[in-house]
Design a protein around this nucleic acid. Structure first.
Lengths: 224, 224
DNA sequence: GGGACTTTGTTCCTGCGTTCACAAGCGGCT
DNA sequence: AGCCGCTTGTGAACGCAGGAACAAAGTCCC
């Protein structure tokens, strides 16, 4: 007797986040309703798939009309859990870490960095945005005090596992890993990996594989 | 009569890139052979899946022994097309773009940035690594001259499509897009998207969804 | 030289994600 | 009030990725 099953496929969740972004843009533009076709093309997905994704949160559209932009945006905000800002810590303030700490796309989406950490004394004390880089020894204190639930790892590969262990022990329950190593975490802690060099290598392979095909270029395709 | 079908699943290609990285590390350590189990655990995947992935490039192991580290590394290098360095251009030298331009993980993996571009006069002329940031008007010239086949977009969302169009017209055939918009490219041009804020939102959702479950933490799991 | 053990390569199967196609429902027009 | 067009929501089929189990093959030991 539960109207909607509690499990939403991970691939769907990723697309819901995209829909939310598009809806926010539409709402800022004063738009009141959207059809699934229009929303799907703005998000770069199939209209039927979009409707199926949205059906996971119960009926939220009006047949013959479409979806109410504001209502759907609020619904997605609630489901994705970005209604209240989430505290995040970032470990490893190299080039990539600095960029992420300053990345506007996070702050405007319900995420707030509450601690930046690095092992190098040269970086400790440096200011990025309105935060000061702290030493790794303060990691547990800050996580406990702020109740941060998300950790981002941009350290060298060699220390990533150690940092992961300390984050998990301190109470962080979700970890985004940019280091090129697989991380083992205790059950109850989610780890997602982003591997930038792998992305490039996949591209290189696809490009090389396509060369002998000599594909024509008369049509236009949608790519996510 | 083609011993190996020319199509390798994209998910497999991504893992092959990971295997290549692990193999390089092993080779540097002087290791001569590896078993699928060991390689799989180092890469964070299932042993059976690893063997299936490798089977796409024909038999390359010795039963009862394992895989020759050097030979397999060379084979993967060839298949992935990173034998010769690939020329890349990067458009949008903000925080993220600067970090990528300096990211060591690219240069050591067969990718070389040959051009950095930005629209802001304040950034033009700035040096990053051994390259100088150029104006967008030089984009086509540099792509043509260097024969760059890969483009990386780290611009604001508003101009990403325009940059994509210019890259494709100039001859770039693979594009890595960090801007939070779906890009349309001509057929024959591959586009891959990396959306950092979506990754965080998925993490936030998984974390919130897990709260009512109150999962125990007695076991240890592998997370990619 | 033969047997047993180890490890690969393959095959089957299960489950998930995606897509297509249709029925149900709502607003607007006559 | 009734009809029509439009759009959502859902059911079914297809294809793909992942995992487990089994057979082939090579090596080491007796």
């Amino acid at each position: 007797m539960q109207p909607r099953p509690r499990t939403i496929p991970e691939a769907t969740v990723a697309r819901l986040a995209v829909y939310l972004r598009v809806l926010t843009t539409l709402a800022d533009g004063g738009r009141s309703t959207v059809s699934s076709g229009e929303l799907a093309s703005a998000a770069g997905v199939n209209p039927a798939g979009l409707r199926k994704d949205l059906s996971h949160l119960g009926p939220c559209g009006v047949r013959g009309v479409g979806y109410d932009v504001g209502a759907l945006r609020d619904r997605l905000t609630g489901v994705l859990g970005v209604g209240s800002a989430r505290a995040c810590v970032l470990v490893g303030i190299g080039n990539l870490g600095s960029a992420l700490a300053d990345y506007a796309g996070f702050g405007t989406r319900g995420f707030e960095f509450v601690g930046l950490f690095d092992a190098s004394p040269a970086r400790i004390g440096q200011r990025i945005g309105d935060l000061e880089v702290r030493g790794l020894d303060e990691l547990e204190d800050v996580v406990t005090t702020t109740g941060a639930s998300i950790g981002v790892i941009t350290t060298p590969a060699e220390v990533a596992q150690t940092v992961c262990d300390r984050l998990a022990a301190a109470g962080v329950r979700s970890i985004l890993n940019f280091a090129p190593v697989p991380l083992a975490a205790p059950a109850g802690v989610d780890v997602r990996k982003v591997d930038l060099s792998v992305e490039l290598q996949v591209l290189a392979f696809l490009g090389q594989q396509r060369v002998p095909a000599l594909a024509g270029n008369e049509t236009v395709g949608e790519s996510a």
